[in-house]
């Protein structure tokens, strides 16, 4: 099996975890997914699969969602390869996924096609280039629902136009601990962007991970939306670095990092919330050079320690205690 995208180390990775581009597309002459019958959905899946298979550059594995187990499906959602909504109802839905999991295409989610390209670190231009290439290839094979005035036509009118959502996931422990995050969330919303917890929502964002995305898709080009996102992301990253310098002046920060590391290294039971809280501190320490761990390893651990993904590592369903025990064991192994 080839290496997953998240095992790489990307640019600006002291703050920027990963970058993703989503494109929403629909095939003309078929109603949008909510109004498709099951046989029609299967037909749409097969039309898109045929088009995707003919793109020489990418090798997609094809999964009918109904054929996957509940844990497999939830794990796909935990790895951000499909949406929770997509995982919740599986009939007539399918997934095209490259081996490195950098490119995934959800079929019959909100739209016939939800293309996602995800790279480690800060890589908006690269991710957009890949997404755009695949989109262009697909648009040669498929007749997309498109209107000169309104752009790509989507089931949800708020995605109309470019149908593009670009996101960067940012690690913002210092902005959280200095209580600057809520103000930031309000500010970016005035700039046509949204900032939300990447694991968990709102102020309860786990692991201090936040997703910054564009919300406006009509009347702005992909290029302009990306430039806008890029500039705001870099400003937030700069603010986070300043806040980190500030919090490291207090000895308590280093102490908290070492304590977090100690708990992760020796705990026998650890739940997702506690794990996320502690690993966030450890990541902060690793970036600072206090803790000897590389960020790619930490990101992979964050993904692998989510509840369904952890259950997948053994071949049977686990109850909560068994899962917390296994998580503690795997974390100990990774850290020792």
């Amino acid at each position: 099996m080839c290496a997953k995208w998240y095992l790489g180390t990307g640019a600006q990775n002291d703050v920027v975890i990963n970058t993703s581009i989503h494109l929403a597309r629909n095939v003309r002459n078929y109603p949008f997914p909510a109004r498709l019958s099951l046989p029609e959905k299967l037909k749409v899946n097969s039309v898109i699969k045929t088009a995707a298979d003919s793109i020489g550059e990418y090798n997609f594995n094809y999964y009918e969602m109904k054929t996957l187990s509940q844990s497999e499906v939830v794990s796909l959602a935990e790895r951000h390869l499909v949406s929770p909504e997509f995982a919740s109802s599986r009939d007539g839905r399918a997934l095209l996924l490259t081996e490195d999991e950098a490119v995934s295409i959800m079929l019959n989610e909100e739209d016939h096609i939800r293309l996602q390209v995800m790279y480690a670190g800060f890589a908006l231009d690269e991710a957009y280039r890949t997404a755009n290439n695949i989109d262009k290839e697909l648009s040669q094979k498929l007749d997309f629902a498109f209107d000169d005035k309104l752009g790509y036509l989507t089931q949800d009118p708020t995605a109309l136009g470019t149908g593009m959502k670009a996101s960067v996931v940012l690690h913002l422990p210092a902005l959280v601990s200095t209580s600057q995050i809520t103000k930031l969330i309000t500010t970016v919303s005035k700039l046509g962007l949204s900032l939300r917890g990447s694991y968990g929502e709102g102020a309860a964002a786990k692991g201090d991970m936040f997703r910054l995305s564009n919300t406006i898709t009509l009347g702005i080009s992909e290029r302009a939306a990306i430039e806008n996102l890029k500039s705001i992301a870099l400003q937030i990253a700069a603010q986070e670095r300043t806040a980190r310098e500030e919090i490291f002046k207090a000895p308590v920060t280093e102490d908290r990092i070492y304590r977090a590391y100690g708990v992760l290294k020796y705990a026998r039971l650890i739940d997702t919330n506690e794990f996320m809280e502690l690993i966030s501190l450890v990541r902060l320490g690793a970036v600072k050079g206090i803790i000897n761990m590389d960020c790619a390893q930490i990101e992979a651990l964050m993904i692998h320690m989510q509840p369904a993904t952890i259950s997948l590592s053994v071949d049977r369903p686990l109850d909560r205690i068994e899962r917390d025990k296994l998580r503690a064991l795997l974390v100990r192994r990774a850290l020792n």
Partner: peptide, 23 residues
């Protein structure tokens, strides 16, 4: 409503390869 959400109501981004020559 589109204007209220997006501020504008005219697409300015990319288009499908098939439509490129049309408009």
């Amino acid at each position: 409503s589109l204007r209220r959400i997006h501020g504008k109501a005219t697409h300015v981004g990319t288009k499908p390869v098939k439509n490129e020559s049309i408009s």
